[in-house]
């Protein structure tokens, strides 16, 4: 098995105050191998998205640790965490989360401007839109695009800084079946390029295709590695 690129230890997240506490995640231990295609499933409100946010460094755990490439990111400063997100992690959200006043191309470019060191140019942003089949929509604003197209722009954006890990929160949850197929095709294309992909989904068909499947119920990881990795097939 490839070395784990994402690893959690005793990961716990609790919301609320001293009187009322909600345990969103309870002692989750998981390992996601480098280059794998993983899905996290489970009922709504049981902690899937919280887990994804913690893995991506968008939120901080109440207890336990998240390791990305062996680094404990729960110990990183806010700035280091932002650098990690800019360089190693790409996010795709259910509601696309594009910046509404920017064009498709500018949305992709925006992600490039937060990376340290020499920045990629407009040319690379165009290539990314080509990768998701939207080179003809570069100058379109999000409201001029269909849901599927917007999601493909957001995939191009997530991929802007060539991250190792792509985290997706129900990327097809808001799409019709035709758009869903198109978006999934792009996701599989990116996976073939050797990227680690983690998808939170309700879609059983997609979950079936995952190399690793995690199920979260009541904040606990209750079933894991239902499928074997490609390397073990």
């Amino acid at each position: 098995m490839n070395k784990a690129v994402v690893k959690t230890e005793n990961l716990t997240k609790t919301y609320g105050n001293s009187r009322v506490k909600t345990h969103a995640l309870k002692s989750v231990d998981m390992e996601i191998p480098n280059g794998s295609f993983s899905c996290i499933t489970g009922p709504s409100g049981h902690g899937k998205s919280t887990l994804l946010h913690l893995i991506g460094g968008l939120d901080r755990p109440t207890g336990g640790s998240v390791f990305i490439d062996g680094t404990d990111i729960s110990a990183l400063s806010d700035n280091k965490l932002a650098e990690l997100r800019a360089e190693k992690i790409g996010f795709v959200f259910q509601f696309y989360n594009l910046l509404q006043n920017l064009t498709a191309l500018e949305n992709v470019e925006t992600a490039m401007m937060f990376k340290k060191g020499p920045q990629k140019a407009r040319k690379e942003a165009k290539e990314l839109l080509e990768l998701v089949g939207l080179s003809d929509k570069a100058d379109a604003k999000p409201f001029e695009l269909s849901g599927g197209q917007q999601q493909r722009v957001s995939i191009a954006r997530a991929f802007a800084n060539d991250p190792d890990i792509l985290l997706m929160d129900e990327p097809t949850g808001n799409l019709d079946s035709e758009s869903e197929e198109e978006v999934l095709k792009r996701i599989f294309d990116i996976h073939k390029m050797g990227k680690t992909i983690v998808i939170v989904t309700h879609n059983n068909e997609l979950a079936e295709k995952a190399e690793m499947l995690f199920e979260i119920r009541d904040g606990k990881l209750c079933e894991r590695e239902r499928k074997l990795l490609n390397t073990e097939k």
Binding site: G56, L58, D78, A82, E83, R85, A86, G90, N97
Partner: peptide, 11 residues
């Protein structure tokens, strides 16, 4: 969104 795609709080 900006924070998620890597903007620091200073940005």
């Amino acid at each position: 969104i900006l924070r998620a795609i890597g903007a620091k709080s200073s940005a």
